[in-house]
Design a protein around this nucleic acid. Structure first.
Length: 286
DNA sequence: AACCGCACCTGGACGC
DNA sequence: TGCGTCCAGGTGCGGT
């Protein structure tokens, strides 16, 4: 479900409501939610207990909470339907509550990981000297990271024998982009999703990256994209960017630029939305 | 080494 | 009402 802007909204919420607190007790209510924590749910809880939570971090769609005085961090991925909520301790359990974390203080709130489809989860990992959990070393920096290297991205794009949307979704090339923001950025750049990346010029890459950043920043400014109650911030509130989408989910509606009816095409077991006039397919594919 | 396709889940919307 | 089908914002793994 969530892409970079939605995950960043959650990170900010964790920083505000969770960072600095000391873990008391953790309960894992569904084993799949900790499947990346090989030692299991009991071990997961035991290792968190007594540790102070550091500043919440993010790379792409991954979030992590460093544990103070240890070279470890709680890594979180929301998958398609995961939520991290800060709830009053006495609030009724959500139907898909998977993990609960209570704290030593008297603030009266707890952290809950709620996840309908169980594609997401929490796990504890060693962190490298730069603070990155070891298991996400293969995840590229995201386009809002000041250290993202535009030139290296361009060179990598040209080396790949792939198409532009596949490249945008490849988290080892550029992280944080998912199906929604890929379609939005491609619409803004007037690029068809099957356009090969091999022939990309430097200006074309620069323009595409500019659109990726613009659309993500615009989404961030209004709290992210929510089609339903599945995506919410830590307080359970939805974002409003769904009202601003130009491509994603607009099959049958007029292109906001040229009025042509927008199309949807099955693509890699999901969908691609595009304007058939503004985003012409490459000749070889058509 | 790259690249592709699929498995991993639950549930809502829709057609019959 | 119920059943089948399709669809959903992601990732990692195995096979080629």
């Amino acid at each position: 479900m969530p892409e970079l802007p939605e995950v960043e909204v959650v990170r900010r919420g964790l920083e505000r409501w969770v960072s600095g607190r000391i873990v008391a007790d953790t309960s894992v209510l569904h084993p799949r939610a900790v499947r990346r924590h090989i030692a299991g749910g009991e071990d997961f809880g035991a290792r968190l207990k007594g540790h102070r939570i550091g500043l919440a971090q993010r790379r792409g769609k991954y979030l992590w909470l460093p544990l103070a005085d240890s070279a470890t961090a709680v890594l979180a991925h929301l998958g398609m339907s995961g939520q991290l909520l800060v709830q009053p301790q006495d609030a009724t359990d959500e139907k898909h509550l998977r993990i609960r974390v209570r704290f030593e203080d008297a603030l009266g709130t707890e952290l809950r990981f709620v996840d309908q489809r169980t594609f997401g989860g929490l796990s504890l990992h060693e962190t490298s000297p730069d603070g990155l959990p070891d298991v996400i070393a293969h995840i590229a920096r995201d386009p809002l990271d000041p250290l993202f290297d535009d030139d290296a991205f361009h060179e990598a794009l040209r080396r790949r024998r792939t198409t532009v949307k596949r490249a945008l979704l490849d988290q080892s090339l550029i992280s944080g982009v998912g199906n929604i923001y890929a379609d939005e950025a491609l619409w803004r750049a007037r690029l068809h999703y099957e356009r090969p990346t091999t022939g990309f010029t430097r200006p074309r890459t620069a323009e595409l990256l500019g659109h990726v950043r613009d659309v993500m920043n615009a989404a961030l400014a209004v709290g992210g994209t929510s089609f339903d109650s599945l995506y919410v911030n830590v307080n359970g509130e939805s974002g409003y960017f769904d009202r601003s989408l130009d491509a994603y989910g607009r099959e049958g509606e007029p292109c906001r630029r040229c009025g042509t009816v927008m199309r949807r095409r099955p693509w890699m077991n999901r969908s691609s939305y595009f304007c058939p006039r503004c985003q012409r397919p490459p000749r070889a594919v058509s």
